[in-house]
Amino acid sequence: MPDLQPAPPAAGPASASRTASGAAPARRPRVLLAMQPDIAPRLLDADTLARLTALADLDPALVVDDFSTPAAAAALREAEVIVSCWGCPPLDATVLAAAPRLRAVIHAAGSVKHHITEACWERGIEVTSAAWANALPVAEYTVAAVLSANKRLLQLRSDYRRLRAPHDWQAGYAGAGNYRRTVGIVGASRIGRRVLDLLRPYDLHLLLHDPYVDAAEAALLGARSVPLDELCAAADVVSVHAPELPATHHMIDARRLALMPDGATLVNTSRGSLIDQDALVAELTTGRLNAVLDVTVPEVLPPDSPLYDLPNVVLTPHVAGSLGGELHRMAAAAADELARWTVGLPFAHPVGPGDIDRSA
């Protein structure tokens, strides 16, 4: 449940008269669901849907991914809040002109880059995202990948299938395991910080590269701040958690891949463009490196991509984030934010224009 303690008023409903406790009386704003229609029933479990309809004037049967249809246009004219998820159309100046009462967008997913436009900031639309909730499963996926990579799980599986007989595994895997191995985290993003936090209990050496994090802050995160080249050269596992920006395009290029030790593993759950994929495939084909890739360029890879079949690659279809029942956490987060907004409290997880360049 949201923390409904008194706080400075947010724009929009905060102008309502306030109660003695400091919070404005709860009101039922008009809310429109904007996302792919097939996402809504997977996202909104019965409890969260009941909560949303109690908090707001909401038609759960109306889920729009096109604002130009007559039903969507009529709902947009009255909407004060949009609850969005994957597939929400861009909220550009034309759409906002057709939504004169719109004051807030609550995104029940991660990045808002695909639908929040400059026109939203110019209009003063309040924006919040469940990126924090979506970060949790990504971090969990990453930690599983790191621990499995150091245990050399893929190679063990392959060798055991091939041999099918007694074998001296200790001799063959003398370098395996997670004790005092080095893990390099690229990017102290929300996900990167959560990964560091989850890895702290293990007997690992943690390195961090982030140009905006100094040595003192890195130490507080449990890591040692190093340049990217040093991280690549030292780490048994390199995990990428930086945003997709022009400055990060191919930040892990052929030269930095060549710096990685033989047998090292590259984990990418951020965006495929951060890795020079052709250079990575060349390294992986030789068997020198391993990879766990949840994102690629393009998504989906063509059927003849070698990444599907290489034995030293774990390839997943961009599912490290919320999947299955994990979607319900994002929906619950959106309901929490709506509850705050209806009593005039600021969003707990606001997104501003300055946040866009630091997000995936």
Rank of each mutant, 00 (worst) to 15 (best):
L4E: 13
A7S: 07
G12A: 14
A20H: 08
S21W: 08
G22L: 00
A23V: 08
A23E: 10
Q36F: 14
P37C: 04
D45S: 04
A56F: 08
A56D: 12
L58Y: 11
D59I: 02
T69F: 10
T69E: 12
A71Q: 15
A71L: 14
L76H: 02
A79C: 06
C85F: 12
P90T: 13
T94V: 12
V95S: 00
A97V: 10
R101K: 10
A104V: 10
A109C: 12
V112Q: 04
T117N: 02
E122Q: 14
I125D: 09
A135K: 07
A135W: 11
L136I: 15
P137C: 01
Y141N: 12
T142A: 12
V146Y: 07
A149N: 03
N150S: 03
R152A: 07
L154M: 15
Q155P: 00
R157I: 11
R157F: 09
S158M: 11
R162P: 09
A165V: 08
Y173F: 15
G177E: 06
Y179E: 15
R180F: 11
V183R: 03
V186Q: 06
V195E: 07
L206M: 07
L206E: 11
L207V: 08
H209F: 14
Y212D: 12
V213L: 07
A216N: 10
A216M: 06
A218W: 05
A219F: 05
A219I: 05
L221I: 11
R224M: 05
E230S: 02
A234E: 14
P243Y: 14
P246A: 04
T248V: 04
H249E: 15
M251Y: 04
A258R: 14
N268I: 01
G272W: 09
D276A: 04
A282Q: 06
T285W: 08
R288I: 15
L289I: 01
N290I: 06
L293F: 10
T296W: 06
E299Q: 06
L307P: 01
P311C: 10
P317E: 06
H318K: 03
H318I: 01
V319R: 02
S322E: 13
E326R: 09
H328Y: 13
R329F: 14
R329A: 15
A339L: 02
W341L: 14
V343S: 00
P353T: 04
P353V: 07
G354M: 09
R358G: 15
A360K: 01
A360G: 04
